[in-house]
Design a protein around this nucleic acid. Sequence first.
RNA 1: GGGGGUGUAGUUCAGUUGGUUAGAACGCCUGCCUGUCACGCAGGAGGCCGCGAGUUCGAGUCUCGUCACUCCCGCCA
Length: 590
Amino acid sequence: MNFYRSHNCGELNVKNIDQDVYISGWVNKKRDHGGLLFVDLRDEYGITQCVVNADNPSFNLIENLKLESVIKVSGKVLKRSDDTTNPNLPTGEIEVLSNEIIILNDSNQIPFQVAINDDSPEELRLKFRYLDLRREKIHHNIIFRSKIIHSIRTKMIDKGFTEIQTPILTASSPEGARDFLVPSRLHNGKFYALPQAPQVFKQLLMISNFDKYFQIAPCFRDEDARADRSPGEFYQLDFEMAFVEQDDVFKTIEPVLYEIFTEYSKKSVTKPPFIKIKYKDSMELYGTDKPDLRNPLIIKDATKCFENSGFKIFENNIEKGFPVKAIKAPKTAGKPRGWYDKLNDWARANGQKGLGYIIYENNEFKGPIANNLNQENLKSIKTLVDLENDDSVFFISDENTNAVKFSALVRNKLCDEIDLLEKNVFKFCWIVDFPMYEIDQQTNKIDFSHNPFSMPQGGMKSLTNKNPLDILAWQFDIVCNGVELSSGAIRNHQIDIMKKAFEIAGYSEDELKERFGSLYEAFKYGAPPHGGSAPGIDRIIMLLAEEENLREVVAFPMNQQAEDLMMRSPNDASENSLKELGIQLRPKKK
RNA sequence: GGGGGUGUAGUUCAGUUGGUUAGAACGCCUGCCUGUCACGCAGGAGGCCGCGAGUUCGAGUCUCGUCACUCCCGCCA
């Protein structure tokens, strides 16, 4: 009890009848009957109807008060008559008959409705984020976020993890994204970098004999945004364990994710152990390394079916070394011609020449491609994708990388079109056995395909004996409903293997020392084998809150251009600051 | 850096094949109203149709450019 409230706006009920109370909150709604005024007073805990009679000295004041003003209402709790109770409100059986009303802070005309959840322009919502955050849905998302993070923290600590903070102002580390730089005043011309992840620090903590480390870690990357990728900054459940193998990491984090997802959602959740899909298989079956397993469609390689088929377009492609991919669309033979045409248009809009298809109906193959093929080819296709009556099958042919990418799109599109996505379920899987190296598309040179911290499978033996492109890494991702939640690895903790790994990617020992100086040194003093992962907190919450966009689960997000419209960030630096930092601007020509 | 979508009142949206004075709902203002809870009734204000060119007798509508927001690709675990 203090000056402002004896109760909050959500707790009064029939037990409080006849009590003198005082409550404070925002004016959510007013209903003015001339001689009688209803005010819905709102705080975080609920809404209470306050009645203001015409003989109340504050009547005129409140009648003219703008919505979202903050007031304190003192009065008596009355039971509402049966015909005036509101079953939609927890406080709907009572009301507060106002006596004294104090305006604590009045509001200007609000730029968008707070009491109603309509679609306001995102630009306005971000500019007036404090108003937006009052609105029911997003307000609850932020509370939801807090609960989930609390729960994650408890579970990690219960599992024996130690929470440790690592520096924000640090040095550039070689994760691969662009760094945010912070100029140093004490060292003119030098810069701190914000961590892209606490990667190096968590490995150093392993070397420091912290057996199990975790942190709800802020990460900063200067890369372009997506709906599921905040520009600038985001949070990871960063964890690392000493003396572990890949399966130990899996066994540790699987129950945490399973429990979080079952506690905070009504959907059914994959039970541990989550299935493991090899990277290579995932690319082949789903065209992506983050497959949505709610989608039952799979991709088949139909290249052989079109060899010497008489269908010139694909045959020419095959001669160039391009594959043909096939995806069965079950029970779509009855779809009108327009449906197929529309998919064809969609394919063109996505940069393809078209989207071929064959319809299998009444034991006959139909459609433009079918007419070009002989029965033998058609039968091989039927067997390949297991065509049943009334199914159709779609074909993608392009240069391999494009074909794989586009077939993933087609797989999603068809699932969407035929409404095959399994509902009310979170489907987890591990993607494992990522390749250690890949060919850089631009330079045509061998480079690390993930980060260079991972241990190659087979260790030094693989590095010396195998074709680099055949070497797998102890590198894994966890994927849920097509969203990549995290990636992790068993790390490379041995200098000689590291030297060799870098040598293969074309980096000298000097470069290794330059980029990994701290780890390179530390590995000389007894580094335990270790590994870990870092699930994205924002993405987990986005999935659980069933939101399509990260901004809906972040209190103060930036827009897609990485601007904070409310704080007006980024902004110019004052001449004074620049001078002190020894920085002269070099404006880019547009 | 590239591609798609959107841009009309404070907000959500409608606006025909290019054709009078650009509409509706919510919000706002004024008045009325003692039982509403999406209160009701009557009246009213509010528009550089994102911006700039162009085509046309005539542009919210067509063309080009540009800006903003958003989604995607590139980039990024």
